[in-house]
Amino acid sequence: MDDNPILRESTRLLNKLHLLSAFFEDEIVYKIYLRTQVIHRLYETNAELDINKLELFHVQFTSAVIDLLKKIKKINERNTSLLFEEIQLNKDLIQSVKDSDFNFADFNNDKQRQALRINTSLRKLYELLSADGQEYPFAKNINAFSARYAQDYFFDISTEMLGDLTAYQPAEVYTNASAVIERKLMGKACKHDFRTEFYCGLKTGNLALEVYKFIDEDTYYLFYPSRHLFLLCDAAVLNTIDQATEVTRNERIIQELLDKNDQLQSSASLARINIPQEVSSLLAENYKKITDINFLQNIAGFDAQANILKTMLNTDII
């Protein structure tokens, strides 16, 4: 019976059912495959049995099960593709945030260069004020730092706070053609040999302030690039400003996106092999019928169950 076309077709259907059972990893589907294989071998090894009944079984049952599972598989793959698209979008966003962290590394490097420019400029300003000189005291590109980094890496403050921070009495400052500096600040700068470091940047709209700290003590001052103004800055005021760093925010965003992708991946894995409960119950019922000892004798009367399976293909249940 090796060349029997009904057996060849039966083997082909068994292979399809086997692949589907492996895809869904569902116990009842695998049991149906095993039972169908038993029925196939029963007809394959017993020439006295009416092979046409095997064909009828496949027409009424196996083909309907395969078509139903294939439809579910197609729907599941469409649904999971949407989840995978969202996962990819999140990955792209994560990469974008990581790329911005490379810019933050540039910011950190340039902070140190800017502090050197400021320290050099303050030393030069001191010399000019002492000698009543009129030269330009500022290092090259002194304003470029804020212009490049303020929008992304400076902390937001109100216009009112900007006004408070930059207010001064004329009697309290030294002034020349290029700069204004608070007298007390210049005294401290001389005392500490102009050794300061960048502390943070502040911004409101397009206006920016750079805040510096003396290395040897907790004393702060600000540089207002657009006005070339230097003033001492109260540490208590700085403590009222939200100074959550860009890196901290980025790390939080990345972690949230990674957690979201883990959830989406888990959902996709489950959605990919999901069989609706109504279908699963029907398959379980059909499995019980094809394992009945009298099933082969009543195979011609399996139409009702087959029709239920076929009806499933044309409903919204799946």
Rank of each mutant, 00 (worst) to 15 (best):
S158T: 15
Y136Q: 11
A105H: 08
S96W: 04
R123P: 00
D101C: 07
E172W: 08
F145P: 05
V97D: 02
D99N: 12
T159L: 10
T159F: 14
R123M: 06
D99Q: 07
P170F: 12
L116N: 08
Q169C: 10
K140Y: 12
N108D: 10
D101S: 08
E86Q: 15
K98M: 11
F145N: 09
M161T: 11
A139M: 03
F154R: 10
E127K: 15
L165T: 07
T159P: 06
I66T: 03
S81F: 04
L116C: 01
L125W: 01
Y168P: 08
F107R: 04
L93D: 10
S146T: 12
L116W: 03
E86L: 02
Q134W: 07
L129S: 13
Y174D: 07
D156T: 13
I118F: 02
A144S: 14
Y153G: 14
Y174R: 12
F145G: 05
L122E: 01
L122D: 01
D152L: 14
Q151S: 15
L162T: 01
L162K: 07
I75D: 01
Y149W: 15
D106R: 10
Y136L: 09
Q151H: 14
S146L: 06
T159W: 11
A131F: 02
L165I: 13
N76G: 00
D99F: 04
T80V: 14
A144E: 11
S158V: 09
S130C: 00
A167E: 11
D132S: 06
S100V: 03
L69D: 04
G163D: 09
P137S: 06
F107A: 02
F155D: 13
I66R: 07
A115P: 03
S100M: 00
Y153D: 15
Q95D: 14
Q169H: 15
D99K: 08
E86V: 08
A131I: 01
